[in-house]
Amino acid sequence: MSSRDAILARVRRSIGSSGADLTRRATVIDRLTRRPKSVIPARGQLPPDERTALFCAKAEAVFASVKRVQSATEVPEAVVSYLRSNNLPQAVRMGADGRLSALPWNTQRQLIVAVGPSAGDDLVCVSYADAGVAETGTAILTSGPHNPTTLNFLPDHHLIVVHAGTIAGDYETVWAQLRDRFGVGVLPRTVNMITGPSRSADIEQTLLLGAHGPRSLHLIVVG
């Protein structure tokens, strides 16, 4: 008997089921298709403006910095101003995501924009979030040909553009959007939920920012 069959047989024996039990199968199929939501915290269930405000406040509480802009056309300027105020060279790397490439980067003449995945030598990378979650100030990013995951972890500074219209109250709302976009039971290789910059408290329980991922997380919230 293979280990697979042996393990499943032992599990069934312990549970006291033959595995052919139709009621149990129906229960499992029901849960996987109905996907009950159970307890959703009230704190994120707000009108859009307040939801965005909660998202920003929660992100700042975990040491992300937040810049709000009125329209997407202001994003390149916000990026340049972040670089300047942190004494960083005018260079960023980003994916070929259409939501980013459509922005007026040519208005920032000194800024060098590299496109593609990171090999580990970029100080600053820019990503576009698929969604935000207000209840904890979390940005959700998905991998794909135009959104390499290395951009989210290798740079010292990670800048994420979040459209206010995509900020949900809770995680469950975002899962539903992912199912609509990729299909039920299907996800891209990586879905990142990012809540603040990298940190560690492994030395004497002292909280230090900038462990292995980005030392700084800057959210540019549009709208």
Binding site: V186, L187, N192, M193
Partner: peptide, 9 residues
């Protein structure tokens, strides 16, 4: 929420 919750598929 911890900083990185990552789904790999």
């Amino acid at each position: 929420m911890s900083v990185y919750t990552t789904l790999s598929t």
